Computed example of a mutant assay.
Amino acid sequence: MMIQEQEPQAEPEATRRDSDGTESSRANRGWWDRNADDYQIEHGTFLGDDRFVWCPEGLDEVEAGLLGSQESLKGRDVLEIGAGAAQCSRWLAAQGARPVALDLSHRQLQHALRIGEGRSTAFPLVQADAGALPFADGSFDLACSAYGAVPFVAEPVRVFREVRRVLRPGGRWVFSVTHPVRWAFPDEPGPEGLTAAASYFDRTPYVEQDERGRAVYVEHHRTLGDRVRDLVAGGFRLVDLVEPEWPAWNTQEWGGWSPLRGTLLPGTAIFVCERD
């Protein structure tokens, strides 16, 4: 019997077009399920198994203390949104916190199970959409997200309101995203990524789509002002905006992040917010 070779799938087309919440969620769930293995192979060493790294610049929560002192984390209920393989939650558990790791991607959570196997710091893993958190009101003291969920959602205010709902009064919400200014520049680590090529004010989503025009990956752009207004509309008070500088020790490239660009342009914005 002859076995027919499958035709290779065409590379997705990159474009800028509208993409609603349903399409964005479906596309990004599929993308992360397909690419989780490669992502963990490529970035797993940098992320570690039980470190809390906020960004490609390498800012570590041990040094940053954006969630509070390490001592203050003990006994705290913490929700990690867009947890991936739950490296951050694993670090939180080691500090005595009670984390819950949530992600849209089943395959990413399988990696969380793999890395956590045999460790004493077990915690719940939950597959769910950040815009519909499956938790009761006031379930957590803290919520965090290191490049998870927020860049990929069409309705960030909906996500912020959900995070506020599940936080207790006085709870802190800290998340990192691509610095909005980077959207004006090509996503290239070399000199070609240093010349603005698009309008910073163009909020049209970045979409990769297949030959039938179906989105297979979506990212949504918001300006810094948009992010602040979205947070206020979601019921939060912004207490800090951290723009990590590129450290001399970090010689790696991660997509468009690189030592060359990092010394000239901010690559990450970290929003530190509190629920009144």
Rank of each mutant, 00 (worst) to 15 (best):
A64G: 03
S105M: 09
V153H: 07
R212K: 07
A149S: 15
G48D: 01
Q6R: 14
R182Y: 07
V100C: 02
E243R: 02
G48T: 04
P56R: 01
T178Q: 06
L264T: 01
G30E: 12
V239L: 11
R168G: 01
D33T: 03
V242C: 04
E42N: 07
R168D: 01
I81V: 12
W246M: 08
S105D: 00
Y206I: 15
V272M: 03
Q209A: 15
G171N: 03
G75I: 06
R90Q: 06
P156M: 04
V228C: 14
G30F: 11
L142I: 12
G131E: 02
V53T: 09
G262D: 00
V207N: 04
A269D: 00
L67W: 10
W173E: 00
G116T: 00
D226I: 15
G21N: 09
R119W: 12
F52T: 03
G21R: 13
D240A: 11
H111Y: 12
C273P: 04
R16M: 08
L125A: 05
T263H: 03
E11R: 14
D33V: 05
P205A: 14
Q9E: 08
V216F: 08
A198V: 13
N35E: 07
P12A: 06
R107I: 06
A132Q: 07
A198I: 13
T204Q: 14
D33Q: 09
P205S: 13
P134H: 09
W183A: 03
D77A: 08
E80I: 03
A196Y: 15
S258A: 08
F46A: 11
A97C: 05
Y147G: 10
G171R: 03
R168T: 09
V207M: 13
C88H: 09
D38R: 13
R114A: 08
D276S: 08
G48I: 11
L66A: 05
W31A: 14
V62E: 06
A184M: 05
E5W: 13
A122P: 02
E61H: 02
P8C: 10
E208T: 12
A36P: 02
F152G: 01
L142F: 10
S120E: 09
I115M: 08
G190Y: 14
A269H: 00
S19D: 01
Q9M: 13
L133R: 02
D137P: 14
W173I: 10
G138N: 14
R222I: 14
E13F: 15
L109R: 01
H43C: 10
T15F: 13
D37F: 14
R222F: 15
F135S: 11
Q70Y: 05
P259N: 02
F201V: 11
W183F: 11
G82W: 04
D202P: 14
C55I: 01
P205K: 10
V53M: 06
G256A: 13
L241I: 15
L224I: 15
D202I: 15
N28K: 09
V207H: 03
L224N: 09
Q209C: 15
S258V: 09
P189W: 15
N250D: 04
R119K: 10
R107A: 13
E117D: 00
L265D: 00
A215Q: 00
H43D: 00
A215Y: 08
N35D: 01
V181Y: 10
L260D: 01
P12E: 04
E253I: 11
G225Q: 10
A14P: 09
N35C: 05
A128G: 05
G75K: 02
